[in-house]
Amino acid sequence: MITLNHYLALASILFCIGIYGVLTRRNAISVLMSIELMFNAANINFIAFSKFITPVFLTGQVFAVFVITIAAAEATVALAIVILIYRHHKEINVDKINFLKW
């Protein structure tokens, strides 16, 4: 039997993988993908809570749909800016972009 706790554990593991990816990856695209993982961890939470805590209402599921939409919008903008970066620097390693500092 898969309980709420299983879902929550999955979500938190996914969230931590996302954090790990965000911290270790240097490629901007990989960082964005890791961020998607973090969003999806939250989505799993929403769906699970919706199913187990408020089975009558669909609040959590609606929320998840919105989060997916927003994440998509965010990713679009981010990718556009990554392309912009690529045009300037001819690479997308985030650690090579540090003109602005101190």
Binding site: A28, V31, L32, M38, A42, N43, V77, A78, I81, L100
Partner: peptide, 22 residues
């Protein structure tokens, strides 16, 4: 550069916030 820093950090903080909301 400002854009990429803002968008990535913004997305991360947004992800953290949404996890908190969940």
């Amino acid at each position: 550069e400002a854009g990429i820093k803002y968008v990535i950090l913004g997305a991360i903080s947004s992800a953290i916030l949404i996890y908190g909301i969940s």
